[in-house]
Every structure is written in structure tokens, then in C-alpha cells.
Design a protein around this nucleic acid. Sequence first.
DNA 1: ATGAAAGCGCTAACAG
DNA 2: CTGTTAGCGCTTTCAT
Lengths: 322, 322
Amino acid sequence: MRTTVHDVADAAGVSVSTVSRALTGGSVSPATRATVMAAAERLGYRPNRTARGLITGRTGNYGLIVPDLRNPFFADIAKGVSARARAVDCGVFITDTDEDVAAELEALATLGRNTDGVLLCSPRATDAELLEAADPDTTVLVHRQAPGMLSIAADIAAGTRQAMDHLRALGHRQIAFLAGPDDSWAGRERLAALADYEILRFGSVAPTFEGGVLAGDLVLASPATAVLAYNDLVAMGLLHRLAARGVSVPDQMSVVGYDDISLAAMSHPPLTTVAVPKGRAGAAALELLLRRAGKTLATVRDREVTLPTGLVVRSSSGVAPT
Amino acid sequence: MRTTVHDVADAAGVSVSTVSRALTGGSVSPATRATVMAAAERLGYRPNRTARGLITGRTGNYGLIVPDLRNPFFADIAKGVSARARAVDCGVFITDTDEDVAAELEALATLGRNTDGVLLCSPRATDAELLEAADPDTTVLVHRQAPGMLSIAADIAAGTRQAMDHLRALGHRQIAFLAGPDDSWAGRERLAALADYEILRFGSVAPTFEGGVLAGDLVLASPATAVLAYNDLVAMGLLHRLAARGVSVPDQMSVVGYDDISLAAMSHPPLTTVAVPKGRAGAAALELLLRRAGKTLATVRDREVTLPTGLVVRSSSGVAPT
DNA sequence: ATGAAAGCGCTAACAG
DNA sequence: CTGTTAGCGCTTTCAT
């Protein structure tokens, strides 16, 4: 059995409560503290975090729920969270829900109960389901907003506008938008920003490489000279299909993605895309939970944090063909 | 306060121990069990893992340590682990060490202390460091082997041979091998298999997209007509550079990757590569820990599990130019 | 400043 | 098959 407070107490000739106080910074005489510390050190004492958690009510652990770890977008967020967690020495449970709402809600319930807070990335659940399943004080939404809930989101509308302004500045007048899933929060944000522009809207394609491949033919059958894809994965599928159809990018068709996942720079040609802070959002979300641990709610203004987005111009966009 | 066993016991009209038994599979009458289950369900009861862990001595949690979550290879493994964990209802702490040995060892110590076991993926630490920092009974190495330690690894040598045989069957006689880091276990395994073939070995390039880009020029300056890359990321960088240099793949140069990460199918042209079970390895590793929980050590033969690899032929490899 | 004692939520004896 | 009784290791009143 591992050494416990009792062993240390015996070794130091004091009571367990004194040991506890000495180790957690309670009021103890300097001499006693030194004795206790020495005994603990000598015995190689390691506090049992489980036992401590039981009484303090805090575990020092947090939960992160993502729809799909294989999606580079979420991998980036997870990495940001993990890095921050490592710095502050807290644990992070990660659950991949495989895009399943039921699994998401289940994870929310389980993690909510066993951690000090949970970060929920781009949940597939509805606002109502979220409101019911999540504790608004210890849950923060990442890249999603819902009434009354803490959130860290990117300024999607601004990024969308930047992309559109970029394409229009290059002379494009027939710009296609490949919409993602209808029920996606991010999708609605994009659409809201697009209301100010004239676009050729293409019905929802799956937000995947395959979705982009499929969209390629649709776009080619339209008068579009440029495409704003729902995300980088779609853009890459599109690029793939355009290459297969012998269409030169950006000479005959400009393509702009969204998210700036690491693959974007590796595509052929390198993808012009809207950079979204991912790792930073993850770190900020954890920070939010850490800061408000124990304290009262932040003001409403602080509850919805918006991070900036910015267009990264690479080689997949160019002047409109004449 | 959240609902506890007491609440459920009151609601079901039984004692807390009966509730406990009903929920953990003890001997309870079917009728009672049904009543308890119903009450638990109705109250939205979630067992507190902390409290349970305190008494059972087990936390029901496991740790997963990866060098880089953004690397699709590790994201795949993590997803496999998470999926299995979800099925058996246990928690998984994931730590991204950012390729840093010190962070890896630190995570190993921390996680080792408050979990039932840890999965260590492709550790960057030496055998000696591993042996010292890890508990051989509760740590399993994934895609790495070390004397005396539990491990799940792919049959790298077999995959390497398949790739070489494929290229030779296509008529290639000048085959370049882009070696990865010298100190990598996987790298040494590849090299061992390559001992039976004549190859043009290129010094270690970084196992990244950039490494592949760099290697492109080296390969073109050699008589090679085919390249076996250290991994898919390198292969994709190579493809990128070859395209930029106007070299047609596979007409003028064949390229074979390793790992079969999801990007491999999206590259241009789609990459021929050695498929390595990733999610499956992760799930199997967790399974290993789960099975031996509490029990005695498995036999030595069971301690080193090897999973099969297999070549996936796509479009980046073709007959040698004449 | 220190010790005794009371639990945190749960499971595992031990009776019945 | 079920309820009662102890704790698991730790922190935290409450006395002293």
C-alpha cells in the first residue's frame, strides 16, 4: 500500500490533520511544518488525488468533447487544450463522440459529473438539448454559441466577409458558396454574413473531402468563377475534382476554404483560406473554466468570447478569368 | 447537490448497498434490480467515479500519451482508444507531449499515479528511461517495443517488404528510401527489413511534409525511379515537390508512403501506402489493460502483440519508366 | 497551533 | 437476497 497521511503523521509524531494542514498551507508552526515536510519527503508521500477530490469536491480534471478527433480542426483544438492543461497541471479527459448526438449528450452527463468543467466543441445537439444537459456554470461551448451559455467562438461572419471581399476585389462576380449542414451553427453564421452579397448558393454538401468532390461537378455546371467552400476539407475535395476535370486553379477557378487546417498549406495548389484560431480557442476555453473555478459567474459580456479570424491568401485564388 | 446512491435508495425503497449491487452486477432479485434501475434512470443518477475509485482502488480511468495530436497517425490512435473507452464506459486522459521527452516522462509519472494504466504512443524516450519511469504492469507501449514491457505494434518489417516487392514487381531497380529519425524505433524496424534489398538510402529527413519537400530535390538528383517514404506525410511533401518540379507521378517517378493516414487517399495522385492499423491498435492496447486489470501478468508471449500491415495500392505507383 | 472527529459517495464485508 | 456497518484517504469543522 502506498504511504498515506497516517504514515506521515506517525513518522512526524503529529496528527493527520496537522499533516494535512502542513501540506495544503494551513496554519501550522514553522517547526512542525518542517518536521512534516521532512517525513513526507522521506516516505515518498504522494497525496491521493481521488481522496482529496472526494472531499474538496474538485478533481482538478476537465473534460473535452469533440465530434471527431480525426478532423484536423478538432485535433488542433484538443492540442491547444492539452498544452494549456499541461502548463497548469490539470488533467483532461477527451471523448470523441463520432458525430453522434446521443454520445455527445452521454459524454456531457458523465464528464459533467466527474470533472470540474467541460469544454464542448461544435456540439451537434440542439440549443434545447444543450441547455438541458449542461451545467451553464461549468460548461463552455467552443465554436458554438447558445443562449445563456459560456462560449468561445471565432468571428465567423467577419472571416466570411473577408473571403468574399477578397474574391470580389479579384474581379469575381459569380461566386458560389458551398453550404454545409443546414443545422450547423457555424453554417448559419456564414449564411448570415453572406446575406450582404450576391452568391450562387449550392445546397448542403457533407462537410468532408467527399462532399467537395461531389460539389466540384455542380460548380463546373454553373457560371461560377470562384467558390467559397464550407471548410478546408470541402475545398480540398473540390480542388481534387477540379484537377481531375482538367480545370486549372486559380486560372480558371478560384477556391477559398475556411478554417486553415494544417493540410491547407499542403494542398495543390496551397489553399487560400480563412484562418480560425483553433488551439488558441481551446486554451482560452480551458482558461475560462480555470478562472471561474469556485468564483461566481462572470458578467454576461464575458460569457461570450469572440476570437478574430483572418484570411490567409495562398495560391488557390486569383484574378477572375476574362 | 447531485443525486447519490442515497437518493436512489430512498426513491426505490431499498438500502444503498442494494442500489450499489443492482448497479454493479451483484446478486439482486430481478424485480429489485428493475426498481432500482428505474429509480436511477428517473433521477438521472450518475455514479461518482471519484468515490468509487477511493474504495475499489481503481479509478476506471486510463491515460493516453501521444507526441502530437495534430499528426493524423496519432489522432487515429486516439480515436480508436476513445471509441473503445466509450463502449466500456471508462475515462481517458489524453496528454499531448508536443514531441518533448521531458513532457512525456512527466505525463507518464502523473498519469501513472492517478489512472489504472497508461497507453504510451511512439514514445520519444529511450528504453532505459521508459523502464525506469513506467510500471511494466500497467503501461502499454503502442507502436513501440521495449524489453519487458507490454506492447502493441504493427508488423512494420512485413509492410516494408510488401512495399519493396510491389515496386520491384513494377520493374523498379533503383529504389530510394527516405529514412526518418535515426533514433526512432519504427525507423530501425524499416531499415532492418530493408537489409534484404538494394536501396538508395537517403539520410534522415524530418518525418514531416516539409521533410518530404526537401527530399524531393535529393531524389531527383539521384537515379531513383521510385521512392519509399518514411511515412505518408513525407510522401505528400515529396509529391508536392515533384509536382512543382514538373515530374509526373507515377509515370516518371513512383511514390509509396507508409501508415495510410486519411490524407493519403486525398493526395494528388492518391497515394500507394502501407496501411497500419491505428485505431485498432489503440483499441487493442486499451483492451490489454482492461483485461489484465487486477489479474496477474499475461505470459510473455502475450505481452508483445503484433498487428498486421498491408499495402494499399492507389495511383502514385506504376511501372518503371523504360 | 493542534488533535479529535465527522464525513465526502461509494462498495465490501458481515449478518440475517 | 437484502440491510447494516465499516471504512477507502483525505480535508475540515470544532474543540482545546
